Simulated scan of single mutants.
Amino acid sequence: MSTKYAKQDAKAYARQHFRGVWAATATPFNADLSLDEAGFRRNLQHWIHTLKLGGLFVSGKQGEFFSMSVAERKRTFELAVEEAAGHCGIVTSCSDTNLDVVLDLARHSQAIGADYIVVHSPVLHFHHDAEATVYEYYRHLSEQLDIGIALWNHPDCGYIMSPELCARIAELPNIVAIKYSVDRPLYKKLTELAGDKILVSTASEEEWLDNIIELGWQLYLCSTPPFLLQTAVDQRINDYTRLAFEGKHAEARAVRDSLAPARQAFKSARPSGTPQAYTKYWMELLGQVGGPVRRPLLNLTDAEKAATREALARSGLKLA
């Protein structure tokens, strides 16, 4: 059993607590590529106490889970739960190509008191119609686990889960949310089909406000913008989210729109082949702990670092 709610109460618990802006954490490594626990704690404290995020999505693709051992992934979960206790929520990324690893990470998450887990749809080869396979995958996870499960689907895995499939999976008792990284017509349809059974979210910060206003969304289960486009003295994502939840839509749009130069500056220097390294260097320029990426990822070149510094300088973000 989850330490916070019974399995049959997972949906109700999520409806009450799985709210606001939840950012995907980056994982800092030392120069020798070992896990930088002190640096991770420092980042967690900044995200939780300074940026006051609603929750954190720990060790997903942004966090380089694919280059980490199971023991390291568990350790990042533990550190996040410790630092977040009483302050914000934690969803742990248990995605893996091996089902036993998924279940091991999920049970560890339950045991240490994480709020929810997120599991990416399985990587499937030679499949043209994956619906029955994917449904059975999540049905088995739901049967085996008590903790609330968030689905995660993205074109990177080779297929898109249909809104109808997601709605069917949403009927399972402890399926509580989805990070649905698809075009708006698909996630809008899922919201219409099953928005009362599953919290629908997508990764795009630029679409978040419209989805609060037009679709009634309460959750932004996202990537890195909440700690890359906000600082101790400039928290416009938090600000427009709060205004939107208060029904002050015009004010919220004005604040959201004022971030356009920062969004454009961030995109302008981002290399196509090494997004995690770019994220980590931008973090360092904001005073957070970044560090190198692990293979197979590539670190930034000196020229790419210079372009990043120039982009931040024209972003309009307030740094102090």
Results as ranks from 00 to 15, higher is better:
Ala85Trp: 00
Asp36Asn: 15
Phe57Gln: 07
Leu33Ile: 02
Gly86Cys: 13
Val58Ile: 15
Arg42Leu: 12
Cys88Val: 03
Phe65Glu: 00
Gln45Ala: 13
Gln45Trp: 05
Ser67Pro: 02
Ser59Thr: 15
Pro28Trp: 08
Gly60Glu: 02
Trp22Ser: 04
Val70Asp: 06
Ser59Val: 14
Ala71Ser: 13
Lys52Glu: 15
Leu33Ala: 03
Trp22Met: 02
Asn30Ala: 14
Leu56Tyr: 07
Gly60Ser: 06
Ala80His: 09
Arg41Phe: 10
Gly89Leu: 03
Ala26Asn: 13
Ala80Glu: 09
Gly89Gln: 11
Gly54Tyr: 05
Val58Thr: 13
Leu56Asn: 10
His46Pro: 00
Thr27Lys: 02
Ser34Val: 10
Arg42Lys: 15
Ser69Asp: 04
Glu64Leu: 03
Glu72Val: 05
Lys61Cys: 13
Gly54Asn: 07
Trp22Phe: 06
Ala80Thr: 13
Phe29Val: 09
Gly89His: 09
Ala26Trp: 01
Leu79Lys: 04
Leu56Gly: 10
Asp36Leu: 10
Thr50Asp: 15
Ala84Leu: 08
Gly63Asp: 04
His49Ile: 06
Glu83Arg: 06
Glu83Asn: 07
Lys52Val: 09
His49Thr: 10
Val81Gly: 02
Ser69His: 06
Ala38Gln: 15
Ala31Trp: 03
Thr76Val: 14
Trp22Ile: 10
Thr76Gly: 01
Arg41Glu: 13
Gly39Pro: 05
Val58Ser: 04
Glu37Trp: 09
Val70Gln: 09
Leu56Thr: 11
Ala23Lys: 00
Asn43Ala: 12
Phe40Gly: 04
Gly60Gln: 01
Pro28Val: 11
Ile90Lys: 01
Trp47Thr: 00
Leu44Asn: 11
Ala71Gln: 15
Trp22Gln: 06
Phe40Leu: 14
Met68Ala: 08
Thr76Gln: 05
His49Pro: 00
Thr76Ser: 10
Val70Glu: 12
Gly89Thr: 07
Glu37Arg: 12
Leu56Lys: 06
Ser67Leu: 06
Phe40Lys: 07
Met68Asp: 05
Leu53Cys: 08
Trp47Ile: 07
Trp22His: 09
Thr50His: 13
Glu78Cys: 02
Phe65Thr: 01
Asp36Gln: 08
Phe40Asp: 04
Leu56His: 11
Ala38Leu: 12
Gly86Arg: 10
Ala26Thr: 15
Phe57Cys: 10
Arg75Ser: 08
Ser59Trp: 00
Arg42Ser: 14
Met68Asn: 03
Glu82Asn: 06
Ala38Pro: 04
Phe57Glu: 03
Gly63Pro: 03
His46Cys: 12
Ala24Arg: 00
Phe40His: 13
Leu79Tyr: 05
Arg73Ala: 05
